[in-house]
Every structure is written in structure tokens, then in C-alpha cells.
Nucleic acid binder design. Structure first.
Length: 491
RNA sequence: CGGGGAGUAGCGCAGGCCGGUAGCGCAUCUGGUUUGGGACCAGGGGGUCGCAGGUUCGAAUCCUGUCUCCCCGACCA
């Protein structure tokens, strides 16, 4: 194996793939399009999951669990929904295997055919709303605020680790409300939770916006999203929150009695983020030496690397490292000590850089004499010598500085990579050469968006929330427009 | 699903056209010397050549099928 990664400049896709594998986040599996999330990658996901879960509960949601399988008939109850997902569903048709009568292993027992085929959930709106029908009778049962952590399956043609896999982990919130206003408020609230999580914990600046009709979730009235920009100038949808109107309530006949005893359909939302966030994280911050993880969600925040000199130096150095590590752990810092004397320091340095551990602390005989350590930060690769006195609080401050720096760096990049254009020539030129977000006027029709996509492969990523209204002419048709929207090529 | 490339030791690859004892580097194991940016010396272990068929006295090599990965398109979070 080569010592270095393919660089971003050489081949961005390959860089990404190598990084996931060599950073120890995931492996390919024996099943096409599916991945094995390795312990280090899963620890990262757990940190993200735990914080999101905390925020969901803080906003009044409860966790529940609904089945993996959905009766085929449920999926077709909402017309737009089935249209959106039909092409990528895994279907269970039988429930038993048997020995091949010809003696060649095992076969599906043709006599064990299901009466009604089951769909492996690509998302759970239908199974959940068929259940909500039984849970909701009165306005007193509302709002109903449920989330589930689950796996889903979408049979994608082309897959990439974390960014698009056939099976992925996610959470899906499904809420029911008495009024349209309340449902929209919920949709926006959860978008805010996502945006704050992305920015504060993942150090990933995001644009909050709404999707154009073309990009809307199948079955939604309105799809809100957070959009992030990757280092190669492509956009990535990092989370979505949908106002579902009364579409699913009508499809599954979920009505409630109001205070004045009238009967009305329930208003719905759904919202989700997935393990795709890990892909976003990797592509937003990492460099040609490996992963760069934001301290707040990094599985390991600080790694100690001893530098032994002579056979007798180990006990004293190890003892000092354990002492310093204990102080850090007391402040809530996640610490690893690599006291293996078989591997050399240089090898460890490179390895922990590959894994994106935010801070590395090296400690050798020289440091012991001077009561100091060498502290290296992953984000800037700067090294500084620090006193062992009060090291814990200095490291806590440093972790916070790294977190902020990652966010600022990503935000500056995004600002620099967001371009306003007025002519079609500029539009195409920016997409081809500069890349990034392109802010341009659009006449608001799905036909124009479709045409632009055909011509340039760029899509409308979103119409930013609180967008400035400004009269202009559509980039393609020249028709009048009231506001700019964000275009980009996207993952 | 279409077009292109690939699958040989844990990893990276050579061999294949022209069938005849399966190789190299890294990693690993043992012993020793080492340790401030991917250590060195010596010795050792590890493979049904992706899988399944076929041709042949004999297949990593030729033929057919199949699975997986990568790149490019169509689809998508």
C-alpha cells in the first residue's frame, strides 16, 4: 500500500474512497452497494446520533420503532410517493428456503410465496401513517411527535460509501398536527435543529432553503433542506424536513375531532438525516494527509504518542502520559494513549493524521526534563510546545479553537465559491471552471429548471430562506424573475 | 441498466498474448539493534489466482456464465 493518499487534485473521487477505507471508517461488503461501517466510523456516527437524539428529545419528540417491511399496497396509497420510490425498492416475495432437489445447495421454496409482497422500507411514511390512524382520534392526541432510528433500503444504481449506499442508517421524524401552521412550524423547527447541528457540531456551514418542485420529496407539499458545499465545488444535501400537508392523512384516512366537534384531516411532517452526513463531513474538512474531524464529534479528540529513548525510558514516560491523560479525561476529553513501543513515532504521526484525530501530544525524554509536551493540531498541522502545567485547560481551549477554525475555513471557502451571475455565458463558465454555488435568476418554472439541468447538469439546490427579493431576468429564458436561487452540480 | 477498466498472500502489484513447480514490495511472526515525521539486519509463515462451469494429459493463463469494485452516463438522500 502506498504511504500517501491520492491527492484531491489528482482525483477527488479516488481520494474520497481511499480516505474512507484507510481512515478506517468503512469497508465494502459482499453485498453490492452495501457497506460495513467499522468501529471507528460507527463511533463517529454514534456521536452524531447521540447529539441529534438529545436535541430531538429536547424539542419534545419520543423515539419509537416501526417495521422494516411495508405491505406493497400501503406504498401505493399516496400517488406521488409511490412514483418517487417505486424504482428503487427491494421486495420480499417468499418466506422460506429449502434444499435444492437436484442437490445444489439451497433454493427459494416456490410454495412459500407471500400472499402480499413486502417492501423493504425506503422510508416509513406509509407504515407509520397506517398506524397513526389508530392513534389519533381527537385534537387531544395531537401533536404526535415521533422519531425513529432505523435502516432503510433504496436500490440505487450507483453507490458510493456513505454518500449513497443501498442500505443506510438514518433517523426519520414523523409528526402529526392539528393545524397547517403548526405543522409548518415543526418543519422549520427541525430544519433549524439540523442546521445548528451541522454548523455547531460538524463545523459544516449550511444554507437553509426550500427545494424547487422538481427536487421536492415524493408526497410533500414543501421540502426544506440544508445544503452544504464540498471541497470539489459540488453541493450536497445534508438533511431534509418536509411539510407533508394532508397528503398522508388523506391517503390513510387519519382524521381528528376538533374542539368544536368537526372532523378534520391531520397535518403532517417528516424529516431525516442519514449516515450520508459522514460523507459530508469527510469531504468538507479532510486533506491530502487524511481525515480531519471536528473535535466535538471526533471519536478520539487527543492522542498521546510517547517518544522512547533507550530501553529504560518507557516506564517514566508512560506514567507521565497516564497522569496527563487522566487530567484531560476529567475534563471530558476523549483520549487515546498509544504506548506501543514496537511502532515508531513517525509511523504513528502519519497514522493518526490519517484518522483525523484533532490533537496529537508527543512526549519524550527531552520533554520530561523541561516539563513540556509537543502539541500538534490536525487542522493546520501546526506544532507548539506547551508546558505540562495546566495542559488540560489549554487542550480544552485548543479543541474549541480547532472546532471554530474548521467552521470558519469551510465558511470562507463557501463564500468564495458562491458566485452571482447574470448571463448564461457566465453561468456556464462558473459551473465548468470555478464550480461551487451559482446564484442566478430563474423564472420559477419546472420546465426551465429541467432544461438547465439537461444543458449543464446543474440543479437548483435550494431557494434560500429569507431570500432577498430582487427583480431580474431568468438566466436561461430571460423571463422576469423575483429572486435569485442557488444552482450547483450536486452529489 | 449501457460503455470502459479491474479482481493473483492482509495491502499494493507482476505473470496472462505464447497453458507446464505462483512471484515481488509492504505488512505479519521470531531474534537482535532501535525510537523527536512512515527504522535496520537475519531468519520464517502465509495462495483452492473473485466464484461456477467448460476445453485440455495439464488452466492464474484459453472459452462461457456469474459476483464485486472503480471511472463515465441515465436514477437518487
Amino acid at each position: 500500500m502506498s504511504k500517501t493518499l491520492t491527492t484531491r487534485k489528482q482525483d477527488y473521487s479516488q481520494w474520497y474512497n481511499e480516505l474512507i477505507l484507510r481512515g478506517g471508517l468503512a469497508d465494502h461488503s459482499a453485498v453490492r452497494g452495501c457497506m460495513v461501517i467499522k468501529p471507528y466510523g460507527y463511533a463517529l456516527w454514534e456521536n452524531m446520533r447521540d447529539e441529534l437524539d438529545r436535541q430531538f428529545k429536547a424539542t419534545g419528540h419520543q423515539n419509537a420503532y416501526f417495521p422494516l417491511f411495508i405491505p406493497k399496497s400501503f406504498l401505493s396509497k399516496e400517488a406521488a410517493h409511490v412514483d418517487g420510490f417505486a424504482k428503487e425498492c427491494a421486495v420480499v416475495t417468499h418466506y422460506r428456503l429449502k434444499n435444492d432437489p437436484n442437490g445444489k445447495g439451497i433454493i427459494v421454496d416456490p410454495e412459500a410465496k407471500l400472499e402480499e409482497e413486502l417492501i423493504v422500507r425506503p422510508t416509513s411514511e406509509t407504515i407509520i401513517w397506517s398506524t397513526y390512524k389508530n392513534w389519533i382520534q381527537s385534537y387531544r392526541d395531537l401533536p404526535l411527535l415521533i422519531n425513529q432510528w432505523a435502516n432503510v433500503v433504496r436500490w440505487e444504481m450507483r453507490t458510493r460509501l456513505f454518500l449513497r449506499t443501498a442500505e443506510f442508517l438514518w433517523q426519520e421524524g414523523h409528526t402529526a398536527h392539528a393545524s397547517k401552521e403548526e405543522a409548518i412550524e415543526e418543519t422549520e423547527r427541525m430544519l433549524d435543529v439540523y442546521a445548528n447541528f451541522a454548523e455547531e457540531y460538524m463545523a459544516l456551514p449550511v444554507i437553509r432553503g426550500i427545494k424547487s418542485p422538481n427536487e421536492r420529496f415524493a408526497g410533500a407539499e414543501e421540502t426544506y433542506c440544508i445544503e452544504a458545499l464540498m471541497q470539489d465545488g459540488k453541493a450536497l444535501q445534508a438533511g431534509t424536513s418536509h411539510f407533508l400537508g394532508q397528503n398522508f392523512a388523506k391517503a390513510f384516512d387519519v382524521k381528528f375531532s376538533t374542539k368544536d366537534n368537526t372532523e378534520e384531516y391531520v397535518w403532517a411532517t417528516s424529516w431525516g438525516v442519514s449516515t450520508r452526513l459522514i460523507g459530508a463531513l469527510v469531504m468538507a474538512h479532510s486533506d491530502d494527509e487524511g481525515l480531519v474531524l471536528p473535535p466535538k464529534i471526533a471519536p478520539i479528540q487527543v492522542v498521546f504518542v510517547p517518544i522512547y529513548k533507550g530501553p529504560d525510558s518507557k516506564p517514566a514516560i508512560d506514567a507521565k502520559i497516564k497522569e496527563l491523560a487522566k487530567q484531560l479525561q476529567a475534563k471530558g476529553v476523549r483520549v487515546k494513549m498509544d504506548l506501543d513501543d514496537a511502532a515508531r513515532p513517525g509511523w504513528k504521526f502519519a497514522e493518526y493524521e490519517m484518522q483525523g484525530i484533532p490533537v496529537r501530544i508527543a512526549l519524550g525524554a527531552r520533554d520530561m526534563e523541561n516539563n513540556q509536551v509537543e502539541v500538534a493540531r490536525r487542522d493546520t498541522k501546526e506544532k507548539q510546545v506547551m508546558s505540562m502545567d495546566n495542559l488540560d485547560s489549554h487542550i480544552v481551549d485548543l479543541l474549541s479553537a480547532i472546532q471554530n477554525n474548521l467552521f470558519d475555513r469551510a465558511q470562507q471557502f463557501r463564500t468564495a465559491m458562491t458566485t452571482e451571475v447574470t448571463t448564461w455565458e457566465e453561468f456556464v463558465d462558473v459551473l465548468d471552471n470555478k464550480t461551487g454555488f451559482v446564484s442566478a435568476h430563474w423564472d420559477g418554472t419546472p420546465e426551465t429548471e429541467e432544461k438547465i439541468k439537461e444543458l449543464t447538469k446543474a440543479t437548483i439546490r435550494c431557494i434560500p430562506l429569507n431570500n432577498k427579493l430582487e427583480a431580474g431576468k431568468c438566466i436561461l429564458t430571460g423571463n422576469p424573475s423575483t429572486q435569485r436561487v442557488l444552482f450547483a452540480r450536486a452529489y
